[in-house]
């Protein structure tokens, strides 16, 4: 019975996210447009500068997985901001007073955010040929699974942050201090291996970096440049992301159980 209520609550929160996502076309466009701009402007601009003498290396296709991860990062974080919104503008109260386990709210939020982030990522994935990448069907499936894992990890993390933030302003502050570094230190623009020691140490703490690395693992399968662009083996990335997800999900569930 408890379990069923838990499941239904997760479903309700998830359903609400999805319904709203499809209703907001402008947000959808903005979220796709931004990475596209990065890819076109940064990718093409920097491509000419980074003509490395490594076989199979092309800056545009190197940066592409980073841009996909960026989309996931932004969409997931955006989804978790809405918790504060809900708390300030009310809907959360409706759920808190209902006879349902509160921890289910955190899970529903994280799953809803991951689903929308995944859809966003999938749209971007259709542009892979533009970045000079040909992806096999099995690679696409692996990538989608991975994107979901990455999105779940980040949404859960964002939920923990949001649950501990009082106001919208506070969240924006934190987000600026979190999102931008997470993105810049994700290895989206340069391989982890070429960064100075201290920066590598910081990047090892960044979950997004594991996502980017995992994506490159899959996208560069069979390419002679793979050893240069990839830092960890794929299973390593997946394990770290899964562990981080479990930890963050547990923390976010606990945070919601505490809400008064």
């Amino acid at each position: 019975m408890e379990l069923k209520t838990f499941g239904v609550t997760v479903y309700v929160i998830w359903l609400r996210e999805i319904k709203k996502y499809f209703r907001e076309r402008t947000r959808l466009l903005a979220m796709v447009g931004q990475p596209l701009l990065y890819l076109v402007i940064m990718g093409h601009g920097l491509r000419e500068m980074f003509q490395l003498n490594i076989e199979g290396f092309d800056y545009l296709s190197f940066m592409y997985p980073g841009i996909v991860a960026m989309t996931i990062l932004f969409t997931s974080m955006f989804a978790s901001v809405s918790i504060i919104w809900d708390r300030e503008f009310g809907f959360l109260k409706e759920v808190l007073v209902a006879p349902v386990p509160r921890s289910a709210i955190a899970v529903g939020k994280a799953l809803g955010g991951s689903t929308t982030a995944l859809l966003q990522g999938a749209i971007l994935l259709a542009l892979a040929p533009l970045a000079g990448l040909a992806l096999s069907p099995s690679a696409i499936i692996q990538i989608l699974l991975l994107l979901f894992l990455l999105a779940f990890a980040i949404t859960s993390f964002g939920t923990v942050v949001a649950a501990n933030t009082e106001s919208m302003e506070g969240f924006h502050m934190i987000m600026n201090f979190i999102i931008v570094p997470l993105f810049l230190l994700s290895g989206a623009f340069f391989p982890i291996g070429v960064a100075p020691e201290w920066m590598q140490a910081v990047m090892k703490l960044n979950p997004v970096a594991y996502g980017v690395d995992a994506l490159r693992n899959i996208m560069f399968t069979g390419s002679p440049a793979k050893d240069f662009v990839v830092y960890y083996p794929l299973y390593h990335n997946v394990l770290v992301l899964a562990g981080f997800s479990v930890l963050m999900a547990a923390l976010s569930m606990r945070a919601f159980n505490r809400v008064e």
Binding site: V8, R16, F89, G90, F91, L92, E94, P99
Partner: peptide
Amino acid sequence: GMVFQDPSLDDRLTARENLQLHAMLYG
């Protein structure tokens, strides 16, 4: 049943959707 002092509807959902979500939450 609770009607809060401050609004607690999701205003980006329809009237019926708000009620449907509530029905699910209350089984």
